[in-house]
Simulated scan of single mutants.
Amino acid sequence: MTHTPPRASHDHDPHAAHQHGADHDADGQAEILDLDAEVLAEHIASITAWLPVGAGPRHIVDLGCGTGTGTFALLERFPHAEVTAVDTSTSHLHRLFEKATKLGLADRVHPVQADLDATWPDLGTPELVWASASMHHMADPDRTLRQVHDTLAPGGLFAVVELAGFPRFLPEDAPEDRPGLEERCHAALDRHHAEHVPHRGADWGYKLTATGFTVEAERTITVHIGPPHTDAVGRYALKSLHRMHSRVARTLTAEDLTALDRLLDTDSPHSILRRGDLTVRTERTVWAARRT
Score class of each variant (00 low, 15 high):
Gly64Ala: 13
Leu105Thr: 08
Ala30Pro: 03
Ala49Glu: 12
Thr67Val: 13
Gln113Leu: 13
Asp87Pro: 04
Phe78Ala: 10
Glu98Val: 12
Phe72Cys: 06
Gln29Met: 14
Ala81Gly: 04
Ala81Cys: 06
Gly68Ser: 08
Trp120Ala: 10
Gly56Glu: 15
Ala100Tyr: 01
Gln113Pro: 12
Lys102Pro: 01
Phe72Gly: 03
Ser89Gln: 07
Arg58His: 15
Lys102Tyr: 07
Asp107Asn: 14
Ala114Val: 09
Pro57Tyr: 02
Lys102Thr: 14
Thr90Ile: 14
Thr101Asn: 11
Ile32Asn: 13
Val61Asn: 05
Ala41Asp: 14
Thr67Phe: 01
Ser89Met: 08
His110Glu: 13
Ile44Phe: 09
Ala30Trp: 01
Ile44Tyr: 11
Phe97Asn: 08
Leu116Gly: 07
Glu38Gly: 08
Asp34Glu: 14
Glu38Ile: 12
Glu38Phe: 02
Ile60Ser: 01
Gly56Val: 12
Asp34Thr: 08
Lys99Cys: 09
His59Thr: 11
Cys65Ala: 15
Val86Glu: 07
Ala37Thr: 05
Glu76His: 12
Ala41Val: 09
Leu123Val: 09
Gly124Met: 06
Gln113Tyr: 07
Pro121Asp: 13
Leu105Ile: 07
Asp62Gly: 05
Lys99Glu: 15
Leu40Met: 14
Leu74Trp: 05
Pro52Thr: 11
Pro57Ala: 10
Leu105His: 07
Val86Gly: 04
Val61Leu: 09
Asp87Thr: 11
Gly124Arg: 04
Asp87Cys: 07
Pro79Ser: 15
Leu75Trp: 03
Gln29Thr: 14
Gly64Val: 05
Thr88Asn: 15
